[in-house]
Nucleic acid binder design. Structure first.
Lengths: 194, 194
DNA sequence: AATTAAATTGAGACTACTCTCATTTTAGTA
DNA sequence: TACTAAAATGAGAGTAGTCTCAATTTAATT
């Protein structure tokens, strides 16, 4: 089992270590079974703790899902931050961010799968992953590169295309062509003047 | 309860009438609870039949979901056929079909909700609802109206935008502006030369 | 009307969970 | 080391379903 969040808490309090174990267990089960079929029993089994312990830390399945979803959104957004490029071209920035976001989501399959399910369910996630996109779109519009008026709906449409690229690649394997086509379509939506 | 499919079978055999009752019941429950939480118990209650009767007609929840999903896809595609316009402009045809498809999906909420869930799950649905779209796209490319190469992936992207428009309107109410923005984005994806 | 075939019924055996709580164990502190 | 507060435990009560099958009812046929 991937102990990503446990490893972060190795030297933290017992409470935090147990929470992290639950989180890692939950990620495994949520990714494999989806929210509705992810039982708390199986999460605690994977985490190596007793069933009842779960309830010392979380109220129910929904609350662990919320926490896991947010943590994953933050980790995936990190992939954007870490790989940010120095160009001033907003189109380039968007393509770069999109590419790395998709790449990471597909490489860490459990994250990708949970992200797909959590995106519509947890409002904070939409915000978290849209930050850079919104900044670069507004910038591109100001520079007259994108011949559109700014509109939240177009941001959502772009997100939906990104989610689709992730979904496909989680199903049929990593494929840079899919990501490139997605980038291309995003620029079309933004009415990018080449 | 909406008895749409039962009404079609009013003068059919007992077997067909019972099946139709199960289908109508299942639609109600699937729309309200989603696939995973739609119990067969509740479906048969709504249908006004005994629990065990379900199993004379369907193997399990998945098999009724498949049938319902396909029936709904066909009904929604009907909304395209019925409203087809005579223009030869493929762009117009696509916008018209999209508009009516979204409208119907949003008006019959149960259908819209089930369609959203079934689209990725049941391959036949993707095919069924893409038929007209593919025809018009190919036509538009031939006429040099859409400056792209034909690609199944772009069809999927368009579908994904349509699904998104439906999802939003099921959540926040019918809104022609959302549909229009979606149509506009579809033409952008097709690189439509105005 | 009698017969047979088809369809329906619902009790109940199974399965699989959620969540609580009295008890035990562990960690941190004096 | 002894103490105490925090955390973990897991048995079990409660809930909610799936699916089967012997018995019954209904429909169709002769």
């Amino acid at each position: 089992m991937n102990k990503f969040f446990q490893n972060k808490e190795n030297h933290s309090s017992k409470k935090n270590r147990t929470r992290a174990a639950i989180i890692d267990g939950a990620i495994e089960v949520l990714a494999k079974k989806g929210f509705q079929n992810a039982s708390i029993r199986e999460m605690t089994e994977k985490a190596g703790i007793a069933n009842g312990t779960f309830y010392n830390h979380y109220k129910d399945r929904r609350s662990i899902f919320d926490e896991v979803g947010k943590l994953i959104a933050i980790e995936l957004t990190n992939a954007i931050e870490i790989n940010e490029i120095t160009t001033k071209d907003p189109a380039q920035k968007i393509i770069n961010a999109t590419t790395h976001f998709i790449k990471r989501s597909v490489q860490v399959k459990a994250w990708g799968n949970i992200f797909l399910e959590a995106y519509e369910e947890i409002p904070m996630i939409k915000k978290e992953v849209s930050r850079y996109l919104i900044r670069d779109i507004k910038n591109g519009i100001k520079k007259k590169l994108f011949k559109i008026k700014y509109d939240d709906f177009i941001v959502e449409q772009i997100n939906v295309l990104i989610l689709h690229a992730i979904r496909i690649q989680l199903k049929t394997g990593q494929d840079i062509k899919i990501t490139n086509k997605t980038s291309n379509s995003i620029l079309h939506l933004l009415n990018y003047q080449r």
